[in-house]
């Protein structure tokens, strides 16, 4: 779904401080991949992230999103395809706006910012509250508090939520996207998704009839049950959604204390698994790089020097990784072992 082809990037070209940030990087992500990226300072990890998201344009090379070159598309235009969390907790949120206003801003990602709609509606507040509860940080009680008053951990968790919530596409849009973006014969795909959706609707109608004909239930109970099965129906529609955002995490726990960092990481893992999101996570912590994700990439001096997947990744240990790191970057070994020493 996301592919990098021959990405090159130099900073300060033609001057004494010229540095090669990325040197011919090639990378292909599959739907649902959770990649952890490690590498020393100046290895090009953050530059890679910024190029994918569009904050920096590459000197040459392409970023392909569903087979379409988006390397020169401006950042805000492709923001709907990415959810970002930055290293600095101050960067991901608007400090002078309330928790709910921040969430509303993120919720509108990829939508036109209308002059004729309030920034958030009553039903949005309900949805945001239920989502905030899953973070388990008590943020659901601070809906109308300014984000600047929150702690770093709370802000990162909020940014994480902001990176993943979005307007759910309509069933019709889901169908369309499914045919458009999935690999395979279009006619077959169309038939497949139609059948799946019809089945969901049939099941919904059947249980709806059952509830309505059930005389032992009161009116309120019926209402509640109907709401419940509606939710089930909508989430089964959504399981066919192929346009989920790619999550880009740039050392998002580096500025937090170890305990908070662990909590934010666990939340990250849960959200990624629940929504089956494709994710790239930069980290300085080798343990986390091994623990999370299904694929690990090591970068050094603007190149991908190791790409470890599947079973090999599961068997990885810190010792092995350190060995690999040393052999791959002999020159800047000293500086980096100081960082990775812990």
């Amino acid at each position: 779904m996301l592919e990098l082809r021959n990405i090159k990037k130099k900073f300060n070209p033609g001057t004494a401080s010229e540095t090669i940030a990325l040197d011919n990087v090639n990378l292909t992500l599959k739907e649902g991949d959770f990649i952890t990226v490690i590498g020393g300072n100046g290895a090009g990890k953050s530059t890679l992230m910024n190029i994918i998201a569009g904050s920096i344009k590459p000197d040459s090379g392409m970023v392909l999103l569903d087979d379409e070159d988006v390397s020169l598309v401006s950042e805000h235009k492709k923001a709907q395809y990415f959810g970002r969390v930055f290293q600095d907790p101050m960067v991901g949120t608007a400090a002078d706006m309330t928790v709910i206003e921040n969430l509303a801003l993120a919720f509108g990602r990829g939508q036109r910012r209308s002059l004729f709609k309030w920034s958030y509606r009553k039903e949005d507040v309900e949805y945001f509250t239920s989502e905030l509860k899953t973070l388990d940080l008590g943020l659901e009680n601070k809906l109308y508090q300014k984000v600047g008053l929150l702690s770093g951990g709370q802000r990162q968790a909020l940014t994480l939520l902001m990176a993943t919530i979005r307007h759910h596409p309509s069933p019709r849009q889901i169908k369309k996207d499914y045919v458009r973006f999935s690999a395979g014969d279009k006619n077959f795909l169309k038939e497949e998704i139609d059948q799946a959706f019809n089945k969901i609707i049939e099941e919904y109608n059947a249980s709806k009839k059952e509830i309505e004909s059930n005389t032992s239930l009161s009116k309120e109970e019926k209402k509640l049950k109907l709401k419940e099965i509606k939710g089930v129906r909508d989430s089964s529609f959504r399981s066919y959604d192929v346009t989920k955002p790619v999550l880009l995490l740039d050392e998002h726990t580096a500025a937090l204390d170890p305990k908070t960092a662990e909590k934010v990481l666990e939340t990250t893992d849960r959200i990624v698994k629940e929504n089956q999101l494709t994710t790239i996570m930069i980290t300085h912590n080798m343990k986390d790089a091994i623990k999370y994700g299904n694929r690990l990439i090591m970068m050094s001096k603007g190149r991908v020097v190791a790409d470890i997947k599947g079973e090999e990744k599961q068997k990885l240990t810190i010792e092995k990784l350190l060995d690999m790191f040393v052999t791959n970057s002999k020159n800047d070994m000293l500086a980096d072992s100081a960082i990775f020493g812990d």
Binding site: E75, K77, A94, L105, R109
Partner: peptide, 19 residues
């Protein structure tokens, strides 16, 4: 209007949220 306030508050965040 909210997106204008976000722009003044934190441009980087605003762009990342598609503003």
């Amino acid at each position: 209007g909210a997106s204008i306030r976000a722009t003044g508050n934190n441009q980087k965040m605003a762009r990342a949220q598609g503003i």
